[in-house]
Design a protein around this nucleic acid. Sequence first.
DNA 1: ACAGTAACCTGTTTGC
DNA 2: TGCAAACAGGTTACTG
Length: 270
Amino acid sequence: MPELPEVETTRRGLAPHCEGRSLTALQLRDTRLRWPVQSDLAEQLCGHTLQTIDRRGKYLLFRFEHGTLLVHLGMSGSMRVMPSHSAPGKHDHVDLCFGEQCLRYNDPRRFGCMLWTQDDPAKHALIAHLGPEPLHDTFNAEYLFQKSRGRSQALKTFLMDSRIVVGVGNIYANEALHRAGLHPLKAAGKLSRPKSEVLVNEIKQVLDHAIQRGGTTLRDFVGGDGKPGYFAQELFVYGRGGEPCKQCGKPLTEKAVAQRTTVYCTACQR
DNA sequence: ACAGTAACCTGTTTGC
DNA sequence: TGCAAACAGGTTACTG
């Protein structure tokens, strides 16, 4: 489900309902996520106040005064605000209850995770080696240009490496490359300095635009407030293999790159 | 250090 | 209609 815009949409939907409130109960129905959820999580958190929900890449950071709960939604996860006493459905693995409302974590494929740490989350093994935030000034043309030097890897695969930059998943990698006029299979090391600038700008624009639209709705994605996103109708290439390029009309090519569906226009992208 | 592949798991879509 | 294969928004772990 989620790439960065969807995670940010979720964060914005959840935060007003629970920041500054005390966690009253925690229902842990299934610990089997990507890594096991520690079984005493309720004892760790109950009675403590959630200060803020922050985001680092696609991780949500639920900050308490005595530690941080790291949450990742994986491929199919979502978190929604629900009445605490509503009946849980299939794959509703965890509820974080704040009085009459709870944040309900649902994840059919269980690729997500929920990890409690009392240390600085920035030093956590899953966070420490992440690249810059794509919307931050530290992600700029010079940075991407330097990082890409000497790399033979496909440009798209390079962009989706979270050590290079976080939050650029399959949808937005495809979209940004099309908007930048860059072929996804071009060697990262052959990216020119001017094109690096174009690409960085397109990544920022497409992510920012998607956040403003409330994320991309594919199948049944909903943000924390239960509302769908509206970006899907504005996608130029993702999910459009064989259909005409919206810029030149030539049928879009679709092929797997590093096991991920990749769509591009051989005329517009070089 | 880098690059490529398999793996985790369930639900939905596609094709015979 | 039924059934099996293919595929899905992510990331780590392992291999060479």
